[in-house]
Design a protein around this nucleic acid. Structure first.
Ligand code: FES
Ligand code: FES
Lengths: 143, 143
DNA sequence: TTAATAAAAGATATTTTTATCTTTTATTTT
DNA sequence: AAAATAAAAGATAAAAATATCTTTTATTAA
């Protein structure tokens, strides 16, 4: 579904969101441990998300990654688009160069519905809204 | 969503299904042209589908690939599983080692629904059922 | 103002996916 | 039987994704 990069990105940002709510910034190393991802690779991913303004960062001691109230309002769809692009939301399920109503692939109609469901799910999931779930350990970011 | 390999596989098998219904076997080259895929790469894919019994093949002049009535009953889900495995149907959307009800990832509930919708769509699509659509050019396999 | 910390940036390496080319085997037609 | 055809099999190559390591820059604390 998503690239590995994107999976790490989502888990990382939810981890950072949770910590930010508690008012603490986290280092790459902390996040990597928190979501069980390769540290240096994650560094690159967070760098990219930072460039795109989805996550905030500060260098130096007491520095790290965090989300401000504004960033908290981004959705998972924003993260996915930042990393994997919008292919999953607009692309043809059978790999035709572009999805088209006029010349649809055989599964166009059904696939369109699914794409749209995925988009809705992600678009309606704001980064901040999983904090409680995670705090209560009703959901996890690693295992 | 699917790997490129899998996209080619699905388009190829629907192409072969259509031709088979008309009673003709098709060569790799014909299929490659029919779905606009790299010929040699497609060869490998059909080889694999043939090994797994989803498509039939015969060597030599008048040979080629075809689907018999039995193969026509396979579903798109069978093709996807043969090529990409069942990760898309069972795997965790955020890349946790395995999906779990007990220790779900934050989007588990919604993602499970989507996975299931995808499975239903593919499982309910038998290879033979697109022939008419393709004959009438209400759907295409290349563009 | 120096040392320590942590992200940013850049370079390199590994693995997987995608693609291509060559040789062999099976089958058919002449 | 020989020539032609087409898939199977095997080898190799190119590109993309994933992962790691090193150097630089910004910031803080001592
Ligand atoms: S054309 Fe394939 S999904 Fe729209
Ligand atoms: S645990 Fe992630 S989808 Fe089930």
């Amino acid at each position: 579904m998503f690239s590995k990069t994107c999976e790490y990105a989502i888990r990382a940002i939810l981890f950072i969101a949770q910590k930010s709510k508690q008012g603490v910034k986290v280092s790459i190393k902390d996040v990597a441990k928190g979501i069980d991802s390769p540290e240096f690779f994650l560094g690159k991913i967070l760098q990219e998300l930072s460039r795109k303004g989805i996550v905030k960062s500060l260098k130096g001691p007491t520095g790290g990654f965090y989300l401000d109230d504004e960033s908290m309002q981004y959705s998972l769809a924003d993260v996915v688009i930042a990393i994997d692009g919008d292919k999953i939301f607009n692309g043809c399920g059978l790999g035709l160069k572009q999805c088209s109503e006029k010349q649809p692939c055989p599964i166009h109609k059904e696939f369109k519905k699914i794409r749209s469901d995925i988009f809705k799910l992600l678009e309606n999931s704001k980064l901040g809204e999983f904090n409680d779930l995670l705090d209560k350990r009703l959901a996890v970011l690693k295992r």
